Amino acid sequence: MQQQSVNVAFMINSLEGGGAERVMCNLLRIMESYFATEQLNVYLILLDNLPEAHLCPKYVNKVNLDTKGSLLQGYRQVRLTLEAINPRFCFSFLTRSNMLNVAVARAVGYRAIISERVNTSSHFAGGIKDNISKLMVKMSYPYASEVVAVSEGVRADLRDNFAVPAARLRVIHNPYDIAHLHELANKPVADLPARPYIIGTGRLVKNKNFSLMLEAFAHSDLTDDLLILGQGDEQAALEAQAEQLGLSERVHFAGFRSNPYPYLKHARFFVSTSNAEGFPNAIVEAMCLGKAVVATNCESGPAEILSGEYPVTVRGFEAVRYGCLCQTNEVQGVTEALNFLNDEDHLQHYAQQSAQRAQAFSDDIFREKIIQTLTLDTSETKEAADVHPG
């Protein structure tokens, strides 16, 4: 007897430029053959009607909502959508999508699988709005059928600070198609800096702390230029800071690039100075291209990636197994790391270590872990979800 097809759903705020959005599209690409074999009809729900920087695979049924960032509008629109789809599960990324997924699941009756992509405590650092957001996470996440953390640091934060039961938490690192990244890196671009350069990428927002990168770069012995790829509301302040530091001729703010990999390929090494991460895609992507890495030891992700361990404490700067870890928000440590990688022997050693470490984050490993998550015994997960998590 032929198996009857079943609907499943995925949900994210939008497909604007960002790491979580890229991973969602990669997940759908990696899982296509599995979904076809299992005869699953796949839907992707986008909460907001915004420009899309990432391509959703063609086999996916994309549903564009227009919630305008509102949880109230989101609940109404998502509930109507998921009632019509009637999915076996809905797998969501990002806080707003996750909270809506859990709330609607309790009303409609499907498995809510949520994935936290950032260290929640660090992401909502303070202020009334952030405190409200943290309370809402604590009131919703423990009721999900399954919670996927992108790193060990994120898992520990959700368990210790947001009452998510340890039995319902699992870590799945992001996937990376190394061969495809090399293909993208080989595409020609016309605006590479004329001089040797190091590179940093990401949204130009306070949590990414590009201000620290500029300060350390100014104090370092490097003669290279610095290329920064990304856009955000801190750009004007960062440009003013670069001018004040006398770096206007050496720092290039190149904006967002849908294909940043040619710029990574031609850089000497990669730098990340974030105050908080979930699992920093940019670090691993640089390593996939064989680039040595300097990164602050923020929560969460860099220590796991660069040392293979968690947790790790660093004072100032430490050269660990796969890269250079620095104390968070501390200029001297980052400066020392930049000077360390300015030595060609150190640079070549850590370029080789990067390429070796990247092999641990393959599509195949990711695919198997996603399948395990999606195929958990539904009766067990429903029973767990019906029990008050406290």
Rank of each mutant, 00 (worst) to 15 (best):
Leu264Asp: 04
His173Cys: 01
Phe162Arg: 02
Thr381Ala: 02
Lys138Gln: 02
Tyr59Ser: 04
Glu330Gly: 09
Gly390Arg: 12
Val294Gly: 09
Val137Glu: 00
Asn98Phe: 00
Ala242Asp: 12
Asn49Tyr: 03
Lys58Glu: 10
Glu277Asp: 03
Val78Asn: 04
Ile128His: 04
Glu304Asn: 14
Gly126Ala: 10
Leu245Trp: 05
Arg367Phe: 04
Phe340Gln: 10
Gln353Phe: 04
Gln231Ala: 14
Leu306Tyr: 07
Ser122Leu: 00
Ser133Ala: 13
Leu289Glu: 08
Thr120Gly: 00
Lys382Cys: 12
Ala337Thr: 10
Gln327Pro: 08
His180Val: 07
Leu245Ile: 11
Leu135His: 01
Gly17Ile: 15
Arg168Pro: 04
Glu285Pro: 06
Glu285Cys: 09
Gln332Gly: 14
His54Ser: 03
Leu100Val: 10
Thr223Ile: 05
Thr335Ile: 12
Asn259Gly: 15
Tyr350Lys: 07
Ile30Asp: 12
Arg367Gln: 15
Glu243Trp: 14
Ile172Thr: 03
Val154Met: 01
Ala149Asn: 08
Val60Asn: 05
Glu249Thr: 15
Val171Arg: 01
Leu338Gly: 05
Val60Ile: 10
Lys206Pro: 08
Val189Phe: 03
Val312Ala: 03
Gln73Met: 09
Gly200Arg: 12
His219Ala: 11
Pro302Ile: 14
Leu94Asn: 07
Cys90Pro: 00
Arg117Ile: 00
Ile228Lys: 06
Ala103Ile: 14
Ala84Phe: 13
Lys68His: 14
Ala179Cys: 04
Phe317Thr: 07
Thr201Asn: 15
Cys298Ile: 00
Thr67Phe: 06
Ala242Gln: 09
Val387Cys: 08
Gly127Thr: 01
Arg159Gly: 05
Gln3Thr: 13
Ala167Ile: 09
Leu192His: 06
Leu264Ala: 08
Leu347Met: 09
Phe361Trp: 07
Gln372Asn: 12
His388Tyr: 13
Glu380Lys: 15
Glu83Thr: 12
Leu47Thr: 06
Ile12Gln: 07
Ala282Ile: 11
Arg29Ala: 06
Ile370Lys: 02
Val137Asp: 00
Phe256Ile: 15
Glu16Asn: 11
Arg168Gly: 15
Val108Asn: 11
Arg367Ser: 10
Ile198Arg: 10
Phe210Asn: 02
Leu15Ser: 05
Gln327Arg: 13
Leu245Val: 13
Ala156Leu: 10
Gln241Pro: 09
Leu15Ala: 09
Lys208Asp: 06
Thr381Gly: 06
Leu214Phe: 03
Ala156Met: 11
Glu32Pro: 05
Thr223Cys: 01
His173Ile: 02
Arg88Thr: 11
Glu285Asp: 05
Gln2Lys: 14
His349Glu: 11
